[in-house]
Amino acid sequence: MINVVENVNKYVFCYLFSFSLHSTAFFSPVFSAEWEAEVLANINALTGSCVVVPCRFRYPGGQKPSSRLSGLWHLHQKEENLNTKQYILAAEVSKVIDSFKDRTRLLGKLGDDNCTLEIDGVKDHDNGPFCFRIEIPDQDNFSFREGCVSIRSFDTPEKPKLTYKEKSYEGRPDTITCSVTHTCPSHMPVLTWSWPFDNEIIIHYNNHKPGIWEVQSILSFIPNARDDDSDITCTAKFHGGKSSESKMSLRVKRKMGFTLLFTSSV
C-alpha cells in the first residue's frame, strides 16, 4: 500500500509572489510618486509546458482596486507607439496577436500591485522581450519598457535529482528524495516512483528562487534483504506531456546473524 501525503506549507502559489525582503519593502508604500516595475530579465521555459513570470509594479498616486486598473502585456518597443503595439495579453481579446490567443492569463491581482503573467503551451519562438503595461481610466497609462522579460525555451525537460544514502540496512527505515525544478507552478510536475512495496510518500512544493519552483517527493520505506540491487526509478511528468526520469540501484546490507554455541564438560 502506498500512502501519499502532500505538504503545501512551503509552496508559494503563483499570485502571492515576494521576490525578496527588499522588493517587499520596495512595494509596500500606499502612495508612490513613480512608475516602476520589477520583472525578471530572463526566465527559462520548457516548450509545450507553461511559464509563470513573476511581476510587481507601482504607479503614482494612491493604491487603487483591481476594478479601476487594466493590465496588459506586449512585445517590447524601442519607442512607444500604440498603433503598432503587439499585445500578448489584453482584456479585449481582439487586441491580442493570433499566436498568443488563449495562451496567456494574468495571475496577479492588480489591486495588490501584482502583474504576474502565465504563458501556456510555450513555443520555441516565445522569446520576447515582453513588457507590462498598466492603464488607469481617467488618469494615465504607462508601459514599463525598461523592465521586460525574455524567455529562453528548451525542448528536453530537466531530469529529476535523486538524493539517497550509499547503503541501506535491512529492517532499518530509510528515505530516498526525488526533486525537480520547473517554471510552471500553476501546473506542477507530477513525480512517481517505480517502487512496488509498502511505503509512504511525502510531497513538498517549494518556491526555489524567483521564477523557479521545485517539487520534492520523499519515499520512506523499510528495506528488505530481497531488495538488494533493485532499481528504483523516479519519473517527472510535466504539464504539456513531456517527461524525464532518473534511476538508482538500492544497496541493502543484510542483518548479521549470530549463532550461540553452548558446550558442557563432564
Rank of each mutant, 00 (worst) to 15 (best):
A225V: 09
N127S: 05
Y87V: 07
I176M: 08
F142S: 07
T24H: 13
S168M: 12
K255W: 00
E146S: 09
N42P: 00
N114M: 09
R133K: 15
N44G: 07
T156G: 00
V149Q: 05
N114P: 03
F19C: 15
C184E: 04
H182Y: 05
L40F: 03
S49A: 11
K255I: 03
K209A: 12
N199I: 01
L110N: 12
F27D: 08
C55G: 09
A91L: 09
S217L: 03
S150V: 02
P137A: 10
S168Q: 10
E6P: 02
G241V: 04
Y59E: 11
V215T: 14
R254V: 01
S66V: 07
T84Y: 02
A90I: 07
I2H: 08
I151G: 01
M1E: 04
V180Q: 06
R152A: 08
L219R: 05
G171H: 07
F132M: 12
F19T: 10
I212K: 14
I201F: 00
K167F: 09
M1C: 01
L191E: 05
A90M: 11
A45V: 01
K209W: 10
F57G: 11
K109D: 15
A90S: 15
K247R: 15
P160N: 02
N81L: 02
L260P: 00
D120N: 13
R56C: 10
S49L: 06
A45D: 01
D138S: 13
S179T: 11
L75T: 04
R133C: 09
D227A: 04
G61L: 08
G240F: 10
Y59A: 07
R56P: 03
Y11N: 09
M256E: 11
S99M: 03
V215G: 01
S244Q: 04
Q86R: 13
P185S: 05
V5Y: 09
E36G: 01
C184R: 06
S150W: 01
A45E: 02
V52T: 12
M188Y: 06
M256D: 07
A90L: 09
T163Q: 08
H208Q: 13
D126V: 02
K95G: 03
Y169R: 10
L191N: 07
S94A: 14
F221W: 12
I88P: 07
S70Y: 11
W73R: 08
V39N: 05
D174F: 11
P29S: 12
I136D: 01
S153V: 10
V53N: 01
P65S: 14
V12G: 05
V8R: 13
R251F: 10
A37Q: 09
D174H: 13
S220K: 15
V5L: 15
W35L: 00
D138G: 03
E146P: 00
G111W: 14
Y11R: 08
D231A: 12
S143I: 14
L260D: 05
L46R: 08
D98A: 14
E36P: 00
C14W: 08
I212A: 09
D229K: 14
P160M: 01
N141D: 12
